[in-house]
Design a protein around this nucleic acid. Sequence first.
DNA 1: CGGCATCCGTTATGATACTG
DNA 2: CAGTATCATAACGGATGCCG
Lengths: 126, 126
Amino acid sequence: MDEACPLKVCGDKKYYCSMELTLQVIGGKWKPIIIHRLGTEGVLRFSEVRRSIPNITQKMLTQQLRELEADGMVRREVYAQVPPKVEYSLTELGESIMPVIGSLCRWGESYAQWHARRLPDQAEAV
Amino acid sequence: MDEACPLKVCGDKKYYCSMELTLQVIGGKWKPIIIHRLGTEGVLRFSEVRRSIPNITQKMLTQQLRELEADGMVRREVYAQVPPKVEYSLTELGESIMPVIGSLCRWGESYAQWHARRLPDQAEAV
DNA sequence: CGGCATCCGTTATGATACTG
DNA sequence: CAGTATCATAACGGATGCCG
């Protein structure tokens, strides 16, 4: 793939591995989860995304959604009405990463099981 | 998978989505890259890993490797000799995430191409 | 409803120097 | 060679208040 990792340029940043680029787009604490929600549920209003992700603050959700939008991953549709209505959904590009998101999810489940076997005393509810 | 995301417990932390657990283990700026290197190259000495990842500092590499080791992803073998020799490699658990790592890498490449088509003026070297 | 602006503390990351 | 220790900065994340 890129064992020697030749220098790559995208925008004004340099990458020695294409994964750095991936992490640039979907890295962080919330983005994979947001993408997972939108990819699973389809079109969601802001408040629906918010409810579907416990613990996320309004600020972080807004911020992450905007970054995902800027990177072409998320579509944002504003309805000119009162009260406001904004709907979010994945773009085609966003959809294209869903298989990987699903893999991350499944690996987490198998890791939880591995962890439970390793430390059986903490296995409840996992 | 887990659309309603029932609460999960692993160790002493709570997760609403198994992906949070995945990100706990392989999240951060360097871990996916480190895993990718070890998975691609096999057994590497500390200095070899370091050379294969430009820009990473010694401190970050040490820290991330230790965390990966604590999570069972990486095997650390110390040779009692002077000068010291420490070899790192993926455990079976670490190997199990390599397919996902590969997917992340390939998605980054396709994203770069998509980006190049979207902004042809920055397409050089991508 | 769906934001934005501000302040603030916590983590994460990094540069540098030193050590067994 | 493979780290530690120290110091500094930047990014992340959260609480609160205001707005169209």
